[in-house]
Computed example of a mutant assay.
Amino acid sequence: MQLAWRDADVADMPTIGTRITTFDGLRQVPGGHGARLEWVRARAKAFRAEFTSTGTPASVTTCDLVTLPYPTRFGLFRASRAVAPFLAITNRMLVIRWQDGDGRRRVLLFEPSDVELGRSTPYFAALARRTPAALSSLLVTEHGTVLGHLARLGIAPEEVDYLMFDHLHTQDLRRWVGTTTPQPDLGGAVVEPLLPNAKVVVQRDELLAMTCLHPIQRPWYQPEAFRAVRTGAFLAVDGALLLGPGVAVLATPGHVHGNQTLALNTSTGVWASSENAIAAECLTPEHSRMPGIARWTRTWQQEVVLNANTIETTAEQYNSLVLEKTLVDRSQADPRFLQFFPSSELTAAWTNPGTKPTFSHHAIHHAA
């Protein structure tokens, strides 16, 4: 099923944030993906200096949502020699708060996945049908819900300004932003938004790609879930945008055409968060103790290990991950690893031998 976006469904962002032009012109760089890699690396260094001068948000809080299985061949693309066909990843939400120049307080939820509705993603639905219920209960652990975490943090649902995902794989946002028509699978009535003032920050490229999905994309999207979303729910971004002090969205295409990364300047330095990789060690794979990872990078002289399920544009994704690698600081806990926070982080599980991460962040801690 394809989408036909109405103009009213998508709002532009002329008055929100500040446009970042550092990365403009990437697609016009002559010489192919290799030349673009070096261009991206140089521009990321330049942007880092600009970004750190913008200040820091008031706080960044990490909220665990769910741990679930994911194919090893996707998460550790081509590099892993683990015998386990699946590894475990933990999806987490980041809650970022800051104050605009006019004094208005803002709240951004990064990766606020509706775990229950995400189960209908074609790939995971098919996997669930093949998995006995008793085994599924061992492989999937739900840690908390978006609304439960907000209540714990003392944030009222109407105080949430922005929702953002690195990309819209697996997402169903109807309960968050509401619908314009009755939804038979959600009680049969028009869905009133649980986050009534929240707008979804998304790259225009991804919205356009979702209007006509390619066969390799279809297992990972729920396009029908977007057909009746509330008018004006989306804020379309073209490229990079500074949302607030120390808070930016960067276009990082490759994993999907309209992939994006959250960049944060914090008390420990610069972080980047996306699903371009599932572990911090995938950005410095020479230090990984997981079977095959360090050997892979030595053999093929590849400096990053991708998370690649759809393989939309592998070389672009590689370049985007190098952008993130160049932008961030080293971890204070272990300087061999970088402050890249996977939105779905590799998690040790006894059921998945050979996929225990060498290093994990688990959370970003920041309060101004």
Rank of each mutant, 00 (worst) to 15 (best):
V107S: 07
G103C: 08
V191E: 03
A248M: 02
V177K: 03
P245D: 04
G32N: 06
P335C: 07
D334Y: 03
R41A: 12
W350K: 11
N319L: 03
H149R: 11
T54Y: 11
L26E: 09
T90R: 11
E111A: 14
A279K: 02
R36I: 02
D12R: 14
L346P: 00
L135K: 10
A251R: 15
V146G: 00
H366F: 01
R218T: 14
G232T: 08
P112N: 15
P122Y: 01
Q171C: 09
A8R: 13
G144S: 12
P223Q: 01
F124T: 08
F340E: 09
T358K: 04
V304N: 09
R289K: 15
D100Y: 12
I20G: 00
T61V: 12
R204A: 11
V29L: 00
K45V: 03
V66R: 05
V200C: 06
F47A: 08
G148F: 04
W300R: 13
A233W: 09
R218I: 10
A49I: 10
M210G: 04
K325C: 11
P219D: 02
D166A: 07
Q217Y: 05
A368L: 12
L94F: 06
T21G: 12
A349H: 15
V191F: 00
R289V: 14
L243W: 02
R92A: 12
N307K: 03
F165I: 03
P253G: 12
H33C: 04
D12N: 13
E159A: 13
R336A: 00
M13R: 07
P30E: 11
A58Q: 11
D12C: 08
L327P: 02
D334P: 02
R97A: 10
T179E: 01
V83T: 15
V29C: 03
D12W: 07
V146Y: 07
G354T: 10
I293A: 02
N265C: 11
A363H: 13
S320C: 05
F110P: 01
Q332S: 15
A49S: 14
L235M: 14
A280Q: 02
W176V: 04
E312R: 10
G188T: 03
F77A: 06
F226S: 00
A277R: 08
D100T: 06
C282G: 07
E224G: 05
V328R: 03
A209E: 15
P353V: 01
D12G: 12
T313G: 14
G55T: 13
L195Y: 01
R218G: 04
L3Q: 07
T67I: 01
F23N: 13
V115F: 08
M1E: 07
S53G: 09
S331L: 09
T52Q: 14
F340P: 03
R104V: 12
S136Q: 14
A348Y: 13
L242R: 05
Q28V: 09
V10H: 00
L37R: 13
S320T: 08
A58R: 03
E316N: 11
V95I: 02
H362E: 14
L323N: 09
T347E: 02
A228P: 01
L37Q: 14
N259D: 15
G25Q: 10
E116Y: 13
D329W: 06
F341D: 03
Q332C: 13
T211G: 05
Q332N: 11
N276R: 10
S136F: 11
S331K: 04
Y70Q: 08
A156H: 08
T297Q: 14
D7Y: 00
W176S: 13
P132N: 01
T313N: 15
R6Y: 03
V202I: 14
